[in-house]
Design a protein around this nucleic acid. Structure first.
Lengths: 137, 137
DNA sequence: CTTGAGTCTGTAGTTGCTACAGACCGTACA
DNA sequence: TGTACGGTCTGTAGCAACTACAGACTCAAG
């Protein structure tokens, strides 16, 4: 199987292996326009080149960093327009950073509550349970 | 409109107001078995009592704390079985706590990357953007 | 020449809701 | 008594972001 980056290109499974992406997700990204439609063989098989690898990696990395599909679409648009105003990218990044920080704050609040209620637990077979009480009240 | 907790019970909108739950979500929770089917008026209107308020609050609180629907189903099952083994509840809570902490750790990692890349940004109109580079590489 | 693995398509399922459309019901006001 | 306006009912479709099939096709190896 032509799995090498050199040569004529990658099939879908090869692209998935190279990027760590799920096989079906590649098709999904193509469908929603996050990946350009690749050329096809005579039999209709997709053939990917280096630029597809790069773009998919970009998308996956941005998803890892918690950007939504729509946010990534915006970033890609900046990339594709070429005249990337760094200021705009910075602003989007910082807006996203604010989101991430507020999620962290939320989770920390949750963590405190869970830890506190679990700590009250005797861990014994008693009918009273402070965790359930905390939830119910 | 009978909106008081005393009296004959609450209609759906009233329950929503009392608990802060979205109107449609109540019906959804009923459909998936998180809320018991309430009695109906002759015309088919749902009528809720105090115990529905309590159960809905329990569910909403648990959701706030990040428990999944299935996890809450488990907790409710323990509640309903009555012989709540505190040990079991504690164990589930701590398992969930572990989840929450790992989410926090993930987000913090993301936060660091975002903050670092944003900090490299000149904020000027240059073609090079370290954020995009960071994503692409 | 057959077998097995890879690929193709469209579609349905997932989680946890949210938002309709279109049909009733029930009360206040004229 | 009529009617207008809100509330409620049902089923269904939509959202994000995938994931997982079924059934048909292709391709290379043995």
């Amino acid at each position: 199987m032509g799995d090498h980056a050199s040569g004529k290109g990658l099939q879908r499974a090869a692209l998935a292996r190279w990027t760590g992406c799920n096989l079906e997700t590649i098709r999904y990204y193509e469908k929603i326009g996050m990946l350009p439609d690749p050329p096809r063989t005579a039999a209709g098989y997709r053939v990917y080149q280096e630029d597809h690898v790069a773009r998919l990696r970009f998308v996956l990395r941005a998803r890892e960093l918690g950007f939504s599909i729509e946010e990534i679409r915006g970033l890609l648009d900046l990339v594709d327009r070429g005249n990337q105003t760094c200021a705009e990218v910075k602003e989007r990044t910082e807006r996203h950073l604010t989101d991430v920080r507020s999620k962290i704050a939320d989770l920390k609040r949750i963590e405190r509550v869970l830890a506190a209620t679990a700590a009250h637990c005797s861990g014994e077979e008693v009918p009273e349970c402070p965790v359930l009480d905390a939830l119910a009240s």
